[in-house]
Design a protein around this nucleic acid. Sequence first.
DNA 1: GCCATCTTTGCATACGAATGCATTAAAACA
DNA 2: TGTTTTAATGCATTCGTATGCAAAGATGGC
Lengths: 339, 339
Amino acid sequence: MSAGGKITSIDVARLAGVSQSAVSRVFTPGASVAPKTAAKVRAAAKALGYRPNSLARAMITGKSRIIGLVVAYLDNQFYPVAIEKLSHALQNKGYHVLLFMASNTAGEMERLMEDLLAYQVDGIITASVAISNDVTRRCADAGIPLVMFNRGQPGSGLSSVTSANALGGRKVAHFLVAGGHRRIAHISGWQGASTGRDRARGLFEGLAEAGLEPHAAIDGLYDRATAAAAAHHMMQAATPPDAIFVGNDHMAFAVIDALRAIGLRVPQDVSVVGYDDVPMAAWGAYDLTTVRQPLARMVEATVETLLAQIEDPARAAQSIEIDAPLILRGSARQPGEAP
Amino acid sequence: MSAGGKITSIDVARLAGVSQSAVSRVFTPGASVAPKTAAKVRAAAKALGYRPNSLARAMITGKSRIIGLVVAYLDNQFYPVAIEKLSHALQNKGYHVLLFMASNTAGEMERLMEDLLAYQVDGIITASVAISNDVTRRCADAGIPLVMFNRGQPGSGLSSVTSANALGGRKVAHFLVAGGHRRIAHISGWQGASTGRDRARGLFEGLAEAGLEPHAAIDGLYDRATAAAAAHHMMQAATPPDAIFVGNDHMAFAVIDALRAIGLRVPQDVSVVGYDDVPMAAWGAYDLTTVRQPLARMVEATVETLLAQIEDPARAAQSIEIDAPLILRGSARQPGEAP
DNA sequence: GCCATCTTTGCATACGAATGCATTAAAACA
DNA sequence: TGTTTTAATGCATTCGTATGCAAAGATGGC
């Protein structure tokens, strides 16, 4: 039915018997058009199947209404779900998401940045811990509003939205101590980024408050294999830990698998606690006690912050932390349960 | 350092002492420019931090080099991983991905389509089984090349890339029969789309070849809760199945959880086979025997088909099926093992 | 019914880059 | 060296829409 040929506002104008400007105004919220004219135009537009060309509009207005979303690995279920919610939220605000998969090779990053700028994105969200500092800096230098999701960068002057990672780590410490654990180890998230560091720090502080030292601590690099190896290694020590706090759920699953593989029972032999509360954490096979990142609120805050910065570029960057509750499930012995 | 102010080809031209056309040609592969001029221009461009504006370029050329990627739910790990690979493949070809999350409400879909067209995408990939037929039709009507990933639509004249679903189902039938199972049930993928139907059909045909009838069959709608309920229901029958083929891994995990929850052992009491071979299928907690969708090859075929159609719009649609091998793990009793 | 005020509307231009055409500079050839 | 061919460049126009400005129309007050 509709020909493949491009239909422009001029075609619509011709059919409706008005000027091109009139057509434009009908599709520009807040512009001055007589209701009668608008009706004619809309009718003509519908008849022709006309759609305003967003790209042309972007040129004129200088706003593309495109947000660049930079992510790295989607294996960790936390990110797909975050992407889903971010997309929806942005779509609701009339923005669209240009997706960039970032491999972390230097050359790739370079190209990615170029592309991000070339497409005139109005703002950027980096939804991955593994984005290099350098990249975030360059985006900011280019004057494009940027919000880091699930990662902070202290002193960078960039906005970020995270859960209260340190507090979350501390909650885990208190919970495990209250549950009677005394040899509490940590397989941390990558220590190259604040997220992993803060969770570790929180744990250690919490332990210190109870007069405990961390029994062991290894950087799991957010990598399943690394985490599994770390767990394996810890359990072969002369005095193995009686609980392991793992830096995120994604690694925690690998840790549980690794423990079971060597015949250990969770939580009878070792308690395991994760961080994120991805949907999978609630699944029967893992039933993971974990700290919930309140995704909906984090997304809301991210979008709100970004759009505010787009509207007012002079606005100061903000670092938002959202409280993360501990979710009790079966992978860790609870206070009052028999050891 | 670089001012937020927009730098255009005219600025570069001025600094390099050439015309705007010259600058354009330097950044247009295949255009005729003297090496000396190119060098001057590149130097000036670098000095100013100039990047060609993709949006402006898109207007002139009529090609945005943007691909619309429409997805629905990202809970099923198959899709995030697919998105990751699709993005990378398209980025390598110089395309970019505009991501659309489709809730399946009618109104939403309408808006989504409008947006897809408004952004002048060069092509569309629908990476979800749950996209309505209607939507795909309308994209095609608009004359935009479209490839359906992981779903076919027989007789639609649209391109699709899937694994050989029917054959996959048949492989499962043969495998389960060879393993000594006789009461083989199916919790299928959504029967509203070809993917789920073909897998079911393949299973049934395979069973028929062995002189067997399906022991039971319920539509799991690709939904965890539905699948779990179905499994529960099946096992409470007077003669429960001794094997269940589940329409995808995502549901299969739920089924295994449900079975274990009522004290059944997998595979000793019931064998479970999935479809997809998502990374999680290999994890210790499930160790799922499943049919592997060869993601890399599917992505490759999808991108290739789409780009071919973009280059030559007259090109006929094609339905590509890629062979899917059965991956043997621990969730199903194997031929030769004791029952 | 007339003038002041507020809406509508069209005209013309701008956004930033690509490209056909004509012109000029350089290279190739005799 | 002169002429033909080829490569390089600039000019002007184009893509589709938004918007300032001025003119025209509608509305209201008295």
